[in-house]
């Protein structure tokens, strides 16, 4: 059989296949970009041009609905905004400056090496996540977290300085991230940490407070902390005196914990070092 014969029987296939594909595509485009948006836009009081541009994604918004205007004032619990430049700064800080601020300002209370001399009063800093430290410093400065001692301390620090000192403390004793699991004294606490208690709407602590979890970036490391401070913070969340946690994450959790559970959890995390 010659080449020509093949070309002959192939031609209608090529033509029809192309025509059908282009036809279907044209139908889809006409309906999706013109007919539907114009009709829907008409019903929503949107002019055809805007409706078409919206359906193409050139203008924002839906072609079928007016853009709702919200008049509710924003009331964020924290002013921290995790952007690329901030993250970059936390990852590549000015180490010398962080060291200097830590030594001159913070060491008096949080210790030379980030380990507090007075666990009843001051939290540890060493091995804490840089993101968590930064978030708290920023919150003290913006007033999102109120504390008579810390607020004046950070009042004059710039964002960069806060990032530098946060990264400095985080870099101390990184090894703490490698957990050595100690079993909790009571199985009930173990359950709250590992699996949560779904009947009380309590998620597992570990689903956020674990470097391998999907918890928010500002989640603090609990292993490095003193037990007095951990209990104090959970009580503060519970009473609502601390309210800088986004989406009330920790407030809604702490409210469901009994005082004894709070103490046991603090003890449990304190022991994981």
């Amino acid at each position: 059989m010659s080449e020509d014969v093949f070309r002959e029987i192939d031609r209608p296939w090529r033509l029809w296949a192309s025509a059908i594909v282009v036809g279907v595509l044209a139908f889809g485009c006409l309906s999706g970009f013109v007919i539907l948006p114009v009709i829907q836009g008409y019903q929503a009081g949107i002019d055809p041009y805007t409706a078409i541009c919206r359906s193409l994604g050139i203008l924002p918004g839906s072609p079928a609905a007016r853009q709702p205007v919200s008049t509710a004032p924003a009331a964020p619990v924290s002013q921290v905004s995790w952007g690329p430049s901030l993250i970059a700064r936390l990852n590549k800080p000015d180490a010398a400056r962080g060291q200097e601020i830590a030594a001159s300002v913070c060491a008096a209370c949080h210790g030379e090496k980030g380990l507090t001399a007075d666990p009843a009063q001051f939290p540890n800093m060493a091995g804490q996540s840089a993101f968590a430290i930064y978030k708290q410093l920023h919150d003290y400065k913006s007033g999102a977290r109120a504390n008579e001692i810390m607020q004046p301390v950070v009042a004059d620090l710039t964002d960069e300085q806060m990032a530098d000192v946060a990264a400095h403390f985080a870099a101390l004793q990184q090894a703490r991230w490698e957990q050595t699991w100690v079993r909790a004294a009571s199985p009930q606490v173990e359950t709250i940490v590992r699996t949560g208690d779904s009947a009380r709407g309590l998620p597992a602590c570990e689903s956020c407070h674990n470097p391998r979890s999907g918890g928010p970036i500002e989640t603090p490391v609990l292993f490095a902390q003193t037990k007095e401070y951990l209990a104090l913070q959970m009580q503060a969340f519970k009473s609502g005196s601390r309210k800088n946690d986004l989406y009330r994450r920790m407030r809604s959790i702490s409210e469901k914990l009994t005082d004894s559970e709070i103490d046991q959890l603090a003890q449990y995390y304190f022991e994981q070092r």
């Binding site: 279907v24 595509l25 889809g28 485009c29 309906s31 999706g32 970009f33 539907l36 359906s55 994604g57």
Partner: peptide, 16 residues
Amino acid sequence: EHSTGFKFVQMTLTVL
């Protein structure tokens, strides 16, 4: 991240 028009076009092709 995508507009309704492109979603519609791809739905049309999905039907096929």
